[in-house]
Amino acid sequence: MNTENNHNENKNKNDIMQSVLEKIKAGDIRMRSKSFFVGKMVVIIIVALMILLTSAFFVSFISFSLRASGRLILLGFGWQGLKAFILTFPWGLFLIDLVLLVILERLLRSFKFGYRSPLIYLLGGVFVVVILAGLAIDEETSLHAAVWHAERSGGAPGFFLGSLYDNVRQPPHDEGLFRGTVVFMGIATPGGPAFLILKSDDQDSDIDDAATTSLVWKVILPPNLNSANSVDVGIGDQIFVAGDVLPDGVHAYGIEKVPNVNTF
């Protein structure tokens, strides 16, 4: 039995060797050139870098849109603000970014440093690099402001890129976030609380629509604020207001002046 097994094994070996050597001699299989493999590695590196840059761009855009629309300030308004922030966060874009990071991680596994690292460290490292790069792009450059201006004047590169910037500065009114100019300040009376009248204007909206650009809101201040002065705003100031929309107006739980960086 052992002799028969050995014979079969040797036969298999000879068949395999002969078959492969015949194919080599006939030219049916050829060595790929070194430049093929070098080229393949170069392509992987280029694709990885492109994914990294695209991912960082998306992160920077998310950061920019949160600032420009005022959603970032919601984080300073307690649990209500946090809830509104979570509801208005651009999760779709975030998910696309995560998919890009997963693809990038698979590409990095082509390299020794990639597969020798546990997945969580590799993904975590890539995530941190992308976040830092994205924030740096947003905070240190005026890339998004420039693209936004170009999109407004019809010169944004590419359909997708232009559509990304549609309404980027528009606060989500449905979630109770508004931006406008204070046009009137009312003090508290025995009959009612202090309030502001807020008016949106052309600078506030991306939509060239009179119905939207001429919106006016009555902002009712919280009971602990007996005048608009106590929130350190004055007539003519541009402010963000976070509040619950009720029939008698917006009941504010957070007010913040619009930072200069938002005016571009």
């Binding site: 492969v20 299989i29 060595m31 790929r32 093929f36 493999f37």
Partner: peptide, 14 residues
Amino acid sequence: VQEVFIKTYQGIKS
């Protein structure tokens, strides 16, 4: 195994 050797030969320069 035959395929392994074919792939090895084709990729030997890598």
